[in-house]
Amino acid sequence: MRKDLILHLSALSVLLLLELLGIFSDYHQGNFARILVLAAYGVGYNILFGYTGLLSLGHALFFSAGLYASGLSVYHLDYDIGQSIILAIGISAFISSLIGFLALRTIGVSFMIVTLMFSQIAYLSILYFGSITRGDEGFVIQQSSRIFFSLDLSNPTIRYYSALLIFSLCIFINLWIAKSSFGRVLVAIRENSDRALMLGYNVQSYKLLSIIISGTISGFAGACYGILFGYVGASFATVSYSIFPLLWVLIGGAGTVLGPLVGAIFMFYLIDYASDITDAYMIIVGVSLLIVTLFARRGLLGELRYRFFKWIP
């Protein structure tokens, strides 16, 4: 079997064993379920940022598109879980193609600012249509609606397995892309988009496709997050939720499959710890961003890959 496949399967097995052997306390089990879904969001972000080299500051838009599409359809329209997730995937694919079409008219710094602004509009729209979305307060998805093929998704153990399944699905998509010739072209665009163009690749359409894949995975993760944890609120559409995946990916290593997971675990516990000490715990995010940009541009797995294991995808 291939080395990279072994690495990722064993990482997933560790996550599975932690649960099977009952090593988790309830507290950490809940945390890890959240981390896994958030890391799936990070995987989506990484496709665009880590592999294609496009830095979006507005992915909260895609995450919340999925979150609200599934949440609202369950809350207002009594959709079942399967239907709501399919709807969420469709809507986030649609929104990411629209945003991609518009934002890709710009490059570099302008791309970052434009994505940031679009995301801010989504946030303001959620507040503006408060009668439907319940604005800042958000809404709770009742336990009775969170049943999937008679599995109660609010049960902590089932929730953990679901989260692990969601995460596994996303990293296998990521692995497959990284190994495909499509993925190689994305990396070529990241490394030198001018050259990729002159080799005859339609760089714009590759970028657009990358945004759609990235946005759809992010939306899928958002939908799962709402359903597994039963809450949908405008806080998930704030700038912070665009910055989080960027930070996870930077810490774990941009363009590595497991980077987002490593980054998410690290940041989740760091913030968890800091929020016991101060209300201003988001200062941790600020400090981490500076440390990463000043001293550790490659991130953890990126550094490992650079120094020792060139084969890490």
Binding site: L55, A280, M282, I283, G286, V287, L289, L290, T293, L294
Partner: peptide, 16 residues
């Protein structure tokens, strides 16, 4: 690009 990320860091630090 890196500068933008860093100024986001500065944003959080000042704000918090």
């Amino acid at each position: 690009e890196v500068t933008i990320i860093a100024t986001i860091g500065i944003l959080y630090i000042i704000q918090q």
